[in-house]
Simulated scan of single mutants.
Amino acid sequence: MPRSRRLPAIAAGGVLALAAAVGFAGPAAASGGGGFTLQITSATGLNPTTESVTLPLLQGTHNGQAVYYVVTDDSDQADAARRGVNWAPKLAHALGTAAVQNASAPGGVVEFPGIVDFSPTRSVTPGPAGNEFGGGTYAPGAVGDATYSPLITTGGGIVFEASQIADNSGQHDSIVSIDKPNHKVTLKTFFGFWNGHRTIYLHLDASSPVVAAAEASNFAPNLDAAPGLGSNDVNTSARSAILPIVNGPVGATNPQRQGLNSALRGEGDPLNINQDIPGQGNGRYSPAWDVHPVFWTQAAIDAGQRRQLVSGSDVASAFGNGQITGGTGPANPSLGGFPAGGFISNCPIVAVG
């Protein structure tokens, strides 16, 4: 989009170089393909090469104006199956907090209490070499109002992930194309890892303005009210962890390449680690990712120990060995005590390889 600067990490050249380096599959068929299995079964046009996916486009309202949104996750299993979206039962634990908008649906059309302003200009300026992420400057291109959250309920104890992506003020920075008459939208995606498997996920909202700008997503601070900081407890937490490596190995053709610094160099996606995925039947998945930033220590870097990490157990092991450090949040027992960062990135998983 001309009004915002795109993060170099998702430029086409960097993506294709990364695909060749780590063996990502080519274009996928609508049903998945390319070595990936769709988790959001209502999605079409999944394409790992262009890093994009097409979803059903829904229309609601806010104070009389049209609001366009997508539904990707649902806390009710039967309703999730009916909609063709991810089952994420943990989202119900956020009911009664500011992380969930209490919406109405007269005549089946959702009336949103909160809305997103898509008019700001997104800006991402990397910092100096070796500190591209931490030394950068960031301004998100979409800002939710005091009520907005991508999580909504219209009653019945069910919570939906319903990110707003367009209204009278503009549109989401990850939109590739939007077809309102035919009710579909194509969005950019990122590659990640789960237990050594490849994942493809959306980047829709974040409670940190830095993350929202870097990921080209909506700034939604109310997400921080979702319970479970540093916890993956299926009985109390609305979150699951995502582990971005800040200062991983760099080099566009390096098969060990990974990290936010590398992404800001234009070398490809950051290749974050997802703790859980939908469809496992254990109820642990949530799109409300509890961000756990990972920092390689200088001692580990000097000793040549820095490498690509592809699972939560990899992170727990490196942490136990003193090779990495984390954020300032509480220790997460499901990750060997690795600490949380204190904010959320809303990134529904689309497919798993």
Rank of each mutant, 00 (worst) to 15 (best):
S4W: 13
G13Q: 15
V15C: 01
A17G: 11
A19N: 12
P27M: 02
A28D: 11
G35A: 05
A43S: 12
N47V: 05
T54H: 02
Q65A: 15
V67C: 00
T72V: 15
D73S: 15
Q77G: 03
Q77A: 13
R82M: 03
H93P: 01
A99F: 06
S104V: 00
P106E: 01
I115D: 00
S119E: 03
P120I: 04
P126Y: 04
A129F: 09
G130R: 10
N131C: 07
T137E: 05
T137L: 11
G141C: 04
T153R: 01
E161W: 02
A166M: 15
G170T: 08
K180G: 00
F191E: 10
N195I: 03
G196P: 15
Y201I: 08
H203G: 14
L204N: 02
D205C: 15
S208D: 14
S208W: 02
V211Q: 09
A220Q: 07
P227V: 05
D233P: 09
V234C: 03
L243P: 07
I245M: 13
V246H: 05
V246Q: 09
N254L: 08
P255K: 14
Q258R: 09
A263E: 13
E267N: 04
G283V: 13
S286A: 11
P293I: 14
A300D: 06
D302L: 12
D302Q: 13
R306M: 13
S311V: 10
S313R: 06
A316V: 12
A318H: 03
F319D: 01
G322L: 02
I324H: 02
T325W: 04
T328L: 15
P333W: 05
G337D: 10
G337P: 07
P339F: 06
S345V: 14
P348M: 11
A351D: 07
V352P: 11
